[in-house]
């Protein structure tokens, strides 16, 4: 039964959607203080390479490798975030784009460590490692009636899903707090925010570092899901792809880039014939969005309307209940 439902190919697509959602969240965090970064492919590659090299060459456990990869990306994020604090809009975008290219070129030329343009292969795979671990405890795929590769894909998907949900919860909660309000205030009016007592330096670097760390985290996960990485995975087109998640879905609320990542990753799979024209379609989407809905598909107003509709519905239901109760009473 289970064996017929589980299709490793679809599970892999879903896994990539989840990784892209994490990337979408990473660009959302930096954008939530009004900082436009095109360096997220660079941070992603730092996470990916760090974790790959540590687990492959130095036998670090996979979990430790992923965490260290994310941390290193975060630290680099702080180092880049501080000097670029004064840059805004396009200037910051260009500076971070330059950073991303520097990182990529570094990975191409540091052949002793990264094997250059060839890339690193046979990186420990998430699913396979887990299945091996499970086998040691005596659990195998046929016990629940599925093949080994089905179990691998299933485990990868479940773990990524849990991680993604936790991450989204983390940032939704952060948004609805004093920190989130400070982010939003800085995005809307930096000078007014500072005059109201917000330490903008701290919060801007915090947002930038958080974004870098999450991107590095996504990169590390990517390395262990594909088992192969090369510098070309993290080139300019990746930076633009991440940005488009936010541009398409909207960067005002966290659900925007999440929707953008989901839709734009699933679309080429659903429409196999057009997947070759993917980047052309991205370009058209960019132009169309800027012309007709620059804030992205999902914006504040939409969320606000959905919320107030829910409130109204609840109120109507409460009123009905109240009336019913009175009806019974009299």
């Amino acid at each position: 039964m289970l064996a017929e439902i589980i299709n490793p190919y679809y599970l892999q697509v879903l896994s990539f959607i989840l990784i892209n959602i994490i990337l979408g969240v990473s660009i959302y965090i930096t954008l939530s203080t009004g900082q436009l970064s095109l360096g997220h492919a660079g941070f992603m590659s730092i996470g990916a390479y760090t974790s790959a090299i540590l687990t492959l060459n130095y036998d670090f456990p996979l979990v430790v490798g992923v965490i260290l990869g994310a941390l290193l990306a975060g630290i680099v994020g702080i180092l880049i975030g501080i000097p670029t604090l004064r840059l805004q809009g396009v200037y910051l975008a260009i500076a971070t784009l330059g950073f991303g290219e520097v990182v990529r070129v570094l990975f191409i030329n540091w052949e002793s460590l990264t094997q250059g343009a060839i890339g690193i292969s046979s990186i420990p795979h998430f699913g396979r490692e887990l299945v091996t671990g499970l086998r040691d405890t005596g659990f195998t795929a046929d016990m629940i009636g599925i093949r080994n590769n089905q179990l691998i894909s299933l485990l990868v998907f479940i773990i990524l899903l849990v991680i993604t949900v936790l991450l989204i919860t983390f940032f939704v909660r952060q948004n609805h707090s004093r920190v989130g309000r400070a982010f939003a205030a800085i995005k809307m009016d930096e000078n007014a925010a500072e005059a109201m007592g917000i330490n903008i330096t701290y919060y801007k670097v915090l947002a930038f570092a958080q974004g870098a760390m999450v991107a590095g985290f996504a990169g590390a996960l990517y390395a262990h899901v594909t088992a192969y990485i090369s510098p070309s995975d993290f080139a300019y087109h990746r930076a633009v792809e991440i940005l488009i998640f936010a541009v398409f879905g909207g960067s005002e609320v966290i659900w925007g880039p999440i929707f953008g990542a989901t839709f734009l990753t699933a679309m080429p799979e659903l429409l196999r014939e057009v997947s070759e024209y993917r980047y052309m379609i991205y370009g058209i989407i960019l132009v169309a969005m800027m012309a007709f809905r620059p804030q992205g598909l999902i914006d504040h107003e939409m969320i606000y309307k959905i919320k107030s509709r829910k409130k109204k519905k609840k109120k109507v239901e409460d009123d009905k209940k109240e009336r019913n109760r009175h009806g019974v009473g009299s």
């Binding site: 707090s177 920190v179 205030a185 925010a193």
Partner: peptide, 17 residues
């Protein structure tokens, strides 16, 4: 108005999340 209270309050990332 709540943004105005920022400097008189102190919950950080950890406490908020």
């Amino acid at each position: 108005v709540t943004v105005g209270e920022h400097c008189r309050t102190k919950s950080g990332v950890f406490a908020s999340v």
